[in-house]
Design a protein around this nucleic acid. Structure first.
Lengths: 251, 251
DNA sequence: GTGCTAGCGTGAACGGCGTTAGCGAACGGT
DNA sequence: ACCGTTCGCTAACGCCGTTCACGCTAGCAC
């Protein structure tokens, strides 16, 4: 689809690329200020001194624009998490994983609307039948796979470098084992199925904690979910054998 | 707010109650067929042979209608879960908890749109600043509290009748302990803080698992999340000391 | 039975939305 | 200088939530 001649970008093409970038940036600004429902084509156009139909020169529809924003957000989040991971001291997988998980929650709590778009049910109507996390080539799909890879790679490294207890293949139900095997085959490195199982379980717990906090489903019990998050993170650390590397957050 | 004279319902009042009920039922039908975004006042009115402004005789706004639908859904879900709980055999808290958790997932997977409205980010715009799970008297608030109580009561009974290991108060971070203490004071029965902590942790895990499945965030690894759910449920059972009561689902 | 009134449903209207169609201006390549 | 592509605009359609003023009708007091 995209041919790569070395420098064929005409002045017009450069302008176009810039405009696309500006539209997506403006859309994101509108998303933050007005929420998901306020993310309207007309609002975006208005915010950048254009009219709504002009945006159709750059995106097929509102949905197409939102998809690209979603992809950009996944990429930006992945960039941020990788940065935090690489800056973690000491640079052991355990510390890196803990820091990255904490950074994920911090991003979620400070980017409410964006998080809802990426991880909530808001994306339901957006990426419709075509599964978001499917194997397709749409921008949000590749971007979300990259995001998932950050945590998957970290847990893999924790396992490879330090190890942690994982269930034997025989302990897993056959149906689950089959699915894990299929998934495992797609990964670059071969790992025991039990590692994938532990990864999924940990990711479910991390996702659940952050999701409940951001969507306000913990307010029935907790006013500030930060201590509970740290407690859950510590529990995950114990499962992965990296509890001793636990560090309270900087703030 | 609601006065209860024995039978003062005039014919007119009965008509009105019926209409309110029909509107909410129609709204729910539209929600299921058209999704959250399709839940429009005009669509509801059209589906029941009315015009949109007429609905304003019964609800203040679209948001008000959606709130009442949310409350009804919470109540219906709570009814269903309590029914499953009371029908569980043998009637031990452990089996009841397992069955109820499984019924929760079954409801979520078969009521996609409704689940998104209750537990996803879709409710973000609906119950705006006034927290859904706050202490107010709005219908969705009382209904969601009732729902949460089903699981809280079950775990409490598991603890009281059989017990399971809970962290000591001293092990909990002071900030977390303070919040749990405050929450615990509002409950009918006094329980150790560690029980509340385990309850939250389990609920986070159950919610995370169901949420990820329903919102499609597990499709990157699993095509059918049922076996993984059962695996997680079994893990929860081990934490609560009821793993031996585990039963595979009927289906 | 008659008249009054409160409640209900309607059509029209306002502003906003996504989207399409058609027009004119600016630009790039030749 | 010319031609075609690209771009942004206005106008329009049908949807939405919401408000308003109007009729109708059912219930009630007398």
């Amino acid at each position: 689809m995209s041919e790569l001649p070395i420098e064929p970008l005409s002045r017009r093409d450069r302008m176009r690329v810039d405009t696309v970038r500006e539209i997506k940036e403006t859309a994101r600004k509108v998303l933050v200020e007005q929420g998901v429902d306020g993310l309207a084509l007309r609002a975006v156009a208005r915010a950048m001194g254009m009219t709504a139909p002009a945006l159709y020169r750059y995106f097929d529809s509102r949905e197409d624009l939102v998809e690209h924003v979603v992809a950009d957000l996944y990429d930006e989040l992945s960039d941020h998490l990788e940065q935090v991971r690489d800056a973690a001291e000491p640079a052991t997988p355990g510390v890196q994983l803990m820091s990255t998980a904490r950074a994920f929650r911090a991003w979620a709590t400070t980017h409410h609307a964006e998080f809802g778009l990426l991880f909530g049910s808001a994306g339901e109507g957006v990426i419709p039948a075509a599964d978001l996390h499917g194997p397709g080539d749409h921008p949000p799909q590749v971007a979300s796979r990259r995001f998932g890879g950050v945590f998957a790679e970290l847990i893999s490294r924790v396992y490879l470098e330090q190890g942690f207890p994982v269930p034997d293949e025989e302990e897993l139900e056959p149906a689950l084992r089959a699915q894990l095997t299929e998934w495992c085959a797609k990964l670059p490195v071969a790992l025991p199925l039990g590692v994938m199982h532990v990864f999924l379980s940990c990711w479910i717990r991390l996702y659940g904690m952050v999701c409940m906090e951001v969507f306000g489903h913990l307010r029935f019990a907790l006013e500030d979910a930060a201590p509970m998050f740290e407690s859950e993170l510590q529990a995950l650390g114990r499962i992965l054998g990296i509890a001793d590397e636990y560090r309270p957050p900087a703030a």
